[in-house]
Amino acid sequence: MVGASSGIGRECAKQLAAAGVKVAAVARRAERLDQLKGEFPDKIIPFPHDVTNTDEIPDLFMRITQELGGLDLIIYASGVMSDVGRHEFNTAKDLPMIEVNVTGAIAWLNEAAHRFERVGHGSIVCIGSVAGDRGRVGQPVYNASKSFVATYMEALRNRLHRLGVRVTTIKPGPTETEMTSHLHMKKMPVEVAARKTLQLVGRSGEFYLSPMHKIAFFVIRNFPSLLFRRLSV
């Protein structure tokens, strides 16, 4: 579970551990991971790590699979969303989103894809976002990073599904986590988002977490560009 120290990732890790699954919990904040381990001492093993240190990942991945005694599922939930103003074009704020949401995802999921391709089983889940469905005025780079995730995952799916590997992109809408604590809007409780995510493990495809989002984003995705640019969404 990459990105296990807060939000959707942490909740997924907890629900998995509660169901008896051994979970390697990866994120930077070690104290948070230790706290998780405190809750599930014989199910969670913490691995403090910053996903932007991509060089570490191949060896760490091997260490984790060794400790777990195998691997059935990887969930990549690490993600950041910088606070970007409507008129801001700020590379320093933008690039970290690429490093975590994109580069980190590639580095971890490539390892998993390589492994699962060889053994012919396994599930890859990446948390994308409804935000990846369109480029919008508020968050150009966050949008693009999530759109990257969807396309990259689609390609993995097309490579691996035939071998028995399941590749799932989850597109949550606003969810109650630290990432969105400053936003005032209707949000899905994180426990619910995690539960729905875990229910989708093993199903290849892209999934929204509520029927409302499915419909709304169907409309948004297909909204003609000429008109979309006139809206301020």
Binding site: P58, D59, F61, M62, H114, R115, R118, V119, G120, H121
Partner: peptide
């Protein structure tokens, strides 16, 4: 070290 093993992975 991972290189030594990585490509030998097999399911049995």
């Amino acid at each position: 070290m991972s290189d030594l093993l990585r490509d030998r992975l097999t399911s049995i």
